[in-house]
Each structure stands twice: as structure tokens, then as C-alpha cells.
Simulated scan of single mutants.
Amino acid sequence: MKALFIHDHYFVHDKVNDKYYDGSGGSFTKYMWDRYLSVFDELLVIGREKENLPNKLVISSSNNVGFVLIDDIKSSKDKILKYKIIKKKIKTEIEKVDFVISRLPSTLGFFAIDICKEINKPYLIEVVGCPFDAYWNYGGMLTKVIAPIQYFKLRNYVKKSENIIYVTQKFLQSRYPNKKQTIGISNVNLKEVQNVGSVLSFYNKSFETFNIGLIGSFHVKYKGHVEAIKALKYLVNKGQKNIRLNLVGTGDSGWLLDIIQELNLNQFVNIIGLLEAGEKGILPFLDKQHLYIHPSKQEGLPRVVIEAMSRGRLVLGASVAGVPELLSEKFLHKPGDWKKLANQIEYIYSSKYMWEKMIKENIEIALKYKEGILQEKRVSFFKKIMNERN
């Protein structure tokens, strides 16, 4: 059987070696496609095309996986002009497969569901985020007008569909309910969890610099970078001179550099940029941090928070989406509340007696998100759908 996966994710096609690369984020790799290939014989991926090669670290090409890329939609006018062409191209590909996996919210994903209903093709929806939070926190008045429109659109599509995978256990289910066949499965790809002993040996070492990590794309401004920098400035002004904020992410960080320079924080902030996912980049980075913070204003269930917990890191986060499913209330702050974040960082730093308990709790929670456990649930759900269809 052949399945089709569709989402607005960017991919880059290097025509020289005929390889496809993840164009934004680095999580769409062979390991992600293997999740579906354990159920289907072949997988066709439809996403958006990015012309430049910003990220050749992470390859997306894999055996039994094909790609069809759609020209990037850069504006509403562009979307209207290309609507028929795009939809026809997607329909042609959907007709060739047995099953469709539509990851929402995404423009291409919505197109795919319309087509599936039109030609009676079985499909499943993966709900990975809240468009209301994304648009509301993105920018100016226009995006705040779009936010409720996108909210009701996703709510309507989910309500009228039969098979839904949510990445959260509660949050997305409550905002975008479905009374038919649903399950909550995170899309984190967690292969191992650190043992408590090795983590404690790291924290028991003396250190001159208390490292704080934050991972989030620089091309969006709702990932909490500004709040993290304001919290850092507050702490530096109070005399905390041995802390450093280490930032990892894709996109142009120029706007952030301007803020850092304006606040005279150059010596306290390290912009690392892009790192490869997993054990070749992100995990070694996390292993060097004493604290991971995630002050993002919009999420589904943030994979990186689970990854940080799996490495036994101390973690603080904003109380958005599925984050409260991972962290207890005392380690949460309201989105945008940089002063509470600063106070929490200061409290964590000065409360070493709590570290061992926090480390053990985080590792225990992360164990529930190991890939083997999640994949067993995922395969079982897919097979149930296919058996009922047959």
C-alpha cells in the first residue's frame, strides 16, 4: 500500500545529487518517514519548495519515499492565482495512493482533505498546533483578524473528520474536538533517555558559567527570544554575571542581535544558529546546558521540551498548549511574563538542593515519550483504521 503525507513544511531539492533536504527545522528525516513505512510500503511526501539551501545538514530523502514539491505561496494574491493549479497537482497525486495523512494546520493539508472527501479517499488528520495562538502572537492587527478565522476552520475540519491524531493529550483535543476515532501521540522522536547517575555527575561538577539553552526558529517572533533576553537583562542588572543564554535555531537572527547589542548583553548571549536534530547536534547541545527554558507563546506539544527532559535538564516553560502536560505549575510562567521567568531562573539557580528531585521527575516523564512506546500506539491506530476501511 502507498500513503501520501502532506503539510506546508519546506523542502529543498538539490538537483545536482537529486536529494531532498529539510528546509525548515530539521525534524523531517528518515526517522520520521519510518513511522509511516512501518505501516505502508511506500510514502509520497507533498510539501512546499524552497529554492535556496539554508540547511544541508539534515537530509530528508529516504528509501521508498518520494517527493512532490509545490511552489511557495508567498501571499494571499499568490494563493488565489495558483489555487486551481495547486489543487489539481495535489489531486493527481492523491489519486495514485491508497491513504492520505494530512498534517494540520496547513494550507496544503486543507486542500488534501477537500480532495479526499471529493473522491472518497481515506485520510487521517494529524493536529500538531493551534493556528489561533500562532496568528494571534505572530504580529500586527491583520494576523489577529486571521487568528479566529483559522481557529474555526481547523475546528470545522477536525469535527467533520473520522480519524485524528493529536500531539497533545488534552490541550488540542479541547480546542479542536472530535467525537469519532482519536488518539493523543506526540511527534517527538525520542530514542533514549539519560540515566540519572550520568546527569547528576554533570550537575555535581563545579562550573564558572550557568548555561541556559533555548531552541526556536528565529524567523518567527513568538518563540520567546525577546522574553528570554529581557529576563537575562533583569538578572544581569541584579548582579548575576556568570550566566549565559545559548540560542539555537534556523532563520535570520539579525533582529535579535540588534536587541542584544542595544541592551549591552553581547558577552552574555551566544547565538549558535542551526544544529542538526538528534545525537549529532541538538542532544549534545542540551547536554551542556544547566537549564532549558521554553518561553514560546505558541506550541502544540514542544518536542524540544521533552528532549531536554530526556537529558535530565532542569526545565522552565510558558503555560501554553501542551506544556502544562509536561511541567508542574511551579515551573511555568504566563506567556510574555519575562519577569516571572527571570525570578524562576534565579530560584532554580539558587536552589541546588532541588536539582536531583527535578532531574528524576523530568526523566520519569520523558520515559513515557520514548519512540518505541509512541510508535506502538501509532501503528496500532493506523492498522485499526485500515482494517475498518477494508
Rank of each mutant, 00 (worst) to 15 (best):
S310H: 06
I229T: 00
T250V: 10
H290Y: 11
K50N: 07
I183S: 05
N211A: 11
I345H: 02
M32K: 14
N55Q: 14
Q344A: 02
N266Y: 01
K179M: 01
I85M: 07
L256F: 01
D34W: 10
V304N: 12
I385V: 12
N156T: 12
N156W: 10
L44V: 15
P177E: 12
E371C: 00
V97C: 14
F111H: 15
N246Y: 06
S201M: 08
P105V: 02
W338L: 03
K191P: 00
G312C: 07
V58R: 02
V127G: 06
Q173K: 15
Y222V: 04
T92F: 05
N189H: 09
F210K: 11
I90W: 09
Y353F: 09
K383S: 02
L200Q: 02
R378T: 05
E93P: 05
L154I: 12
H290C: 04
K84F: 13
T168Y: 08
I46Y: 09
I215W: 02
R389H: 11
I125Q: 05
V236K: 15
M354V: 03
S198V: 07
M309P: 04
G66N: 15
S106D: 12
K15Q: 14
A277S: 15
Q375L: 14
R378D: 03
L374N: 01
R48Y: 10
K84W: 09
E208D: 15
G129K: 05
I149Q: 08
L53C: 10
K144W: 09
V304R: 04
E307T: 04
G336C: 09
G109Q: 03
P148Y: 06
Q169C: 00
I59D: 06
E42W: 03
N237M: 09
S350N: 13
L374Q: 01
I260T: 04
Y151D: 09
R303S: 10
I272H: 03
S351L: 04
E95I: 04
V68I: 14
K370H: 00
G251T: 02
V269Q: 10
M1V: 08
D71E: 14
L44P: 03
K56Y: 12
V379D: 13
P177M: 15
N178C: 13
G140R: 11
I164F: 11
F110G: 07
G322K: 03
D18E: 15
W136A: 13
K238P: 07
Y138P: 02
F268H: 14
S27F: 14
V199R: 10
F268R: 04
I46M: 06
L367D: 08
S206H: 12
E227W: 07
Y151H: 12
S75C: 11
P335F: 05
N390G: 07
I212P: 06
P324F: 01
K84T: 11
K159R: 15
Y10V: 06
K230L: 13
Y347Q: 05
L190Y: 01
L108V: 10
I101R: 04
I125H: 06
K330V: 09
F171V: 01
N362D: 11
C130S: 08
I165V: 15
H290E: 03
G254W: 00
K50G: 13
